[in-house]
Structure formats: C-alpha cells, structure tokens
Amino acid sequence: MTIPQHLRYTKEHEWISVDGDVATVGITAFAAEALGDVVFVELPEAGSEVSAGTPCGEIESTKSVSEIYAPVDGEITEVNQAVIDTPESVNSDPYEQGWLFKVRVESMPELMDAAAYTALTQEG
C-alpha cells in the first residue's frame, strides 16, 4: 500500500493536500481497503462550514458506513461530483480521482506526516 510522502494525514484516515489556503481532502488507501467496495458517498455542500475533527459526510461500502471527518476548520469550496457519480473511484484511485472535497482553510490542527501515518496503520 502506498502512502504518498507529500500529504498530511489524520488519525481518522483522511489525507490532506494544501495549496495556498485551499486544501484537497480524501480518504487514504488504507481506509478505502478497510471499507471494501465503496457504493455511496455523501459529501458536505459547497459553501458549508466544517470544523476539524467533526463529521461532514459519509462513505458507504458493501461492508459498512463510515463518517468522513473534516481535517481542518474552513469553508467547503468544491465537492468531487465524479466521486458521487462513481463512488468506486475512492477504491481505485483514492489519492487522485477519488478526492472528496476542497476546503478554504481557516485553521489547521497538527496533522501526521507520512512516517507517522505509516506507524499508525502498522500498529494494529
């Protein structure tokens, strides 16, 4: 399983890529694999406010339903309509085409780097 070095991670298995004041958010390959085949994605609406660590959407798979947590405080600027239309892209390409939403960052908690996230996923 690949863990991209340039991203930051949460303990809830979201990844974040920051470009200026806008962050792209998705779930990691580890989370996608644990979920199994993703069949439905519910994302926050553009313009809505999110708070770090709080649920802002859901991912449903053939095995379970999991909440998506906001990794930062901010305003949703864009959602990935392609993931809503073809949720399986979360499994097939979680770091590129399977991104979930973009958020204008107002504040960001400390997030894990790739090494810390790798250690987290190898604990269990």
Rank of each mutant, 00 (worst) to 15 (best):
I27F: 02
S61L: 02
D21H: 08
E42G: 00
S51L: 14
E106L: 14
V65K: 04
F40A: 00
T10L: 08
V38C: 06
P44A: 06
E96F: 09
H6S: 09
Q122G: 14
K102F: 07
L7V: 00
T28G: 01
Q122L: 12
S92G: 11
V79C: 02
E42K: 15
V41P: 05
S48F: 06
A32I: 12
E110S: 06
V50D: 10
A52E: 01
I16K: 05
L111V: 00
W15Y: 12
G53L: 05
E88K: 15
P87S: 09
L100Q: 01
S92Y: 14
F30N: 12
L120C: 07
E14R: 12
R8D: 13
E106S: 15
A119M: 07
P71W: 09
L7G: 00
Q5P: 09
T118C: 01
I3G: 04
P94C: 02
L120S: 07
I27H: 08
E123I: 05
F101E: 01
L35R: 05
V38L: 11
T2C: 01
D21K: 08
Q5W: 01
T10F: 10
S89D: 02
A114G: 05
E42C: 03
D21A: 12
P55D: 01
P4I: 13
A23N: 07
V83C: 01
L120I: 04
P94G: 07
L35H: 07
F101L: 13
W15G: 00
V105S: 09
E110F: 02
E78D: 07
K11R: 15
G20L: 04
A70P: 00
A116M: 06
S92L: 15
P87E: 12
C56D: 05
A32W: 05
P87N: 00
E14G: 10
G26D: 03
A70V: 07
I3M: 08
E67D: 13
E12W: 11
H13W: 10
E110T: 08
V25W: 03
P55G: 00
L120D: 13
F101M: 08
V39A: 01
E75N: 13
S51R: 13
T77N: 15
C56S: 04
S48V: 02
T10A: 13
S92F: 13
E123P: 10
P94K: 08
F40P: 04
D93P: 05
V50H: 03
E67C: 03
Y117R: 13
N80L: 10
I84D: 03
E75I: 13
P4H: 08
Q97E: 14
V50F: 09
P4S: 14
I59K: 02
L35V: 11
E33Y: 04
V38T: 06
L120A: 14
A31I: 07
V83I: 10
V39W: 09
A29I: 02
W15K: 07
M108T: 01
E60A: 02
E110G: 04
A114T: 04
S17Q: 09
G47F: 02
W15A: 06
G20M: 06
H6G: 10
A70W: 11
T62W: 03
E106V: 13
